[in-house]
Nucleic acid binder design. Structure first.
Lengths: 258, 258
DNA sequence: TAAAAAATGTTAAAAAAATAACAAAAAAGC
DNA sequence: GCTTTTTTGTTATTTTTTTAACATTTTTTA
C-alpha cells in the first residue's frame, strides 16, 4: 500500500468518525479522486469490518476501533479474507432451525455471524463484540453473552464468570476458530486468555466445528486449547496441505472444503 | 400521526442510535412493513434533520439530538428526554480521572455514557448493550461487561454469572437509574430481572448516585431494589416535588438539580 | 534505468434504489 | 354505521450506484 493511499484511508476514517457516514460522491470530491478509487479504499475498510458499505454510503461500524489498525493489506491477506468469508458462509449453511450454537471470537467466525439468515430461529451464545453486534440485529436469534474484561485487540470479553456461564450452557453446535493447527501439538491460538472460553465452548457443545483457512495448518502459536481429534468437523479452503487431508481423514473427522 | 407510525419511528431512531445507520431493506424487514413505508417514515425524520438519507441507507445525523418528544410513544417518555440528557451530562461532569464506575442500564445512563470525554482515563463496568457500544469507543476507558441473556426491550444482559462478576468488582462510583422513587416504598424498576444487577452494583460501589428525572418521584413500579437512604447523591431536574426535596435533605443525601 | 507490480481512471452494462401514481386498507370523525 | 381522511402497498418508470473490464499512470524493485 502506498503512502498516498494510506493517507486517504485515514482521512476517510476521520471523516466517518465525525459524521457517522459519508457518501461515496462526497468522499471522492473531498479526496480529489475518482469514485472508483474511493470504492476500492472502502472495500479494504469493509473487509476489516471498520465500515459497513451500503448503496452510495459508507457507515462506520459501531463495533470497530479504527484508530489502532494498520491498513497494510497484502495480496496474501486479501486472499485469506476471501476464503474466510467462504468458510463463514459454508458454516452458516450447515445451521439448522432451532440450533443452539456457540460462536467463538475471530474474523472467520465473524463471517459466519454475518451470514446467518435474518429470520432463522436460533439460540446463540458468544463472547466477542463483533459477533455480538452482528447477532443482536438478527430477528430470529435469542442471544446470550458471556462477559468479562474487554480485550481491544481480539474484541473478546473474558472472565471466570463468563467461562462459568459457558459451562452452564448447552449447545448443539460450537463454531471455533484457531490460529494454528498441527497434528502433533494440537490446535492453538495467540493469547492465553482465550483458552478457557474455547475449552468451555467445546465441552458444552454436541458438535465441535473448527473454522480455519488453510494457512493455519502446520502453524503453532503459544496457547494450546484442543487436539485435532476433539473436533467433529473442520471447514477450510482448498489450500489445505495433502498431508493434513489424510490426517483429518484418518481421524474420522468430517472435512469440508469450500 | 397514528400510534403505529409513531412506534415505528421510535424503533427506527433507537436502531439508528445503536448502529449509526440502517438500510431501508433492513428496516422494512425488522418493522414488517414495505420499503415504501419505511421511506415515508424516514422522510419525516429527514425533514426534521434527524437522519440523513443516502441511497439505500438512513444515517443518524451526528449533529442533531433526536427530539424524542415528537416521536415518543407515551406522553411520559416524551416529556423528559431533554431533562434526561442534562442529568446524564451533569453526572459525567462529576467524574474524576481514574474513577472506577458502574453504569446501570437505562436511557438516562445512556446520556451519561455519551457525555464521557473521549480521552478520560476511567475503568467502567456495564451490562447493557447501548452503554457498551458508547463506552467501547472511548479511548480512555477500560471496559468490563457483565453478560447473560439479552433482553431486547431494556437492552440489558442478565445472568447469575453476570451478577457474580459485579459482586467481585469494586468501584468508586455507581450510577443507577430507576423508574419509580417513593419515600416509603423505596426505589423501583419495571422488571424483576434488573434487580440483582442493580443491588450488586450498589454493594460494590463506594458512592451510589441515582439518576432520575423528576417524573419518577412518587411513582411505584413492581420491582424494588433499594431505599432512598441507600444513595449518596441524587441527580434530577427542577421538577422534583418540594416534598421530596425535604425528604432527601433530611436523609443527608446530596441533591443535584440540573 | 527498465521491467514488474500496484494503483488509478474511464467506460459500458448490470443491479439496485428512488420516485410517482394509483389502488387498497386502516383509522378517525361524525 | 357510514363517510372522510390518513396510511400503506404495488407497480412501472426514472435515477443512481455498482460492477467488471481494460487502458493509463504511478510506484516499486531488481
Amino acid at each position: 500500500m502506498t503512502a498516498r493511499k494510506r493517507e486517504r484511508i485515514t482521512t476517510i476514517i476521520n471523516t466517518l468518525l465525525l459524521e457517522n457516514a459519508a457518501s461515496i460522491q462526497e468522499l471522492a470530491k473531498r479526496l480529489s479522486v475518482s469514485e472508483m478509487t474511493v470504492r476500492r479504499d472502502l472495500n479494504i475498510l469493509a473487509k476489516d469490518n471498520i465500515v459497513r458499505l451500503m448503496h452510495g454510503a459508507a457507515v462506520l461500524n459501531p463495533g470497530s476501533r479504527p484508530d489502532r489498525r494498520q491498513y497494510a493489506i497484502t495480496q496474501q491477506e486479501a486472499l485469506n479474507a476471501e476464503e474466510k468469508m467462504l468458510i463463514g458462509q459454508k458454516a452458516a449453511s450447515i445451521l439448522e432451525q432451532n440450533d443452539i450454537i456457540i460462536i467463538d471470537s475471530g474474523s472467520t467466525t465473524d463471517y459466519l455471524a454475518k451470514a446467518i439468515p435474518y429470520d432463522m430461529p436460533l439460540t446463540v451464545l458468544c463472547f466477542a463484540l463483533n459477533i455480538l453486534i452482528e447477532i443482536h440485529r438478527k430477528k430470529g436469534c435469542s442471544l446470550t453473552f458471556a462477559g468479562g474484561i474487554f480485550h481491544k485487540n481480539t474484541l473478546m470479553f473474558e472472565s471466570p464468570e463468563g467461562v462459568e456461564l459457558i459451562r452452564r450452557y448447552r449447545a448443539t453446535k460450537a463454531f471455533l476458530s484457531a490460529s494454528g493447527i498441527m497434528s502433533r501439538l494440537g490446535v492453538t491460538c495467540s493469547t492465553q486468555y482465550e483458552i478457557e472460553s474455547k475449552k468451555a465452548s467445546m465441552n458444552s457443545a454436541l458438535s465441535k466445528i473448527l473454522l480455519a483457512d488453510s494457512s493455519k495448518f502446520g502453524r503453532i502459536l503459544s496457547a494450546y486449547f484442543a487436539d485435532l481429534k476433539d473436533f467433529d468437523t473442520i471447514i477450510t479452503d482448498s489450500g489445505i496441505p495433502e498431508e493434513y487431508r489424510k490426517i483429518i481423514d484418518n481421524l474420522g473427522i468430517d472435512l469440508i472444503i469450500v
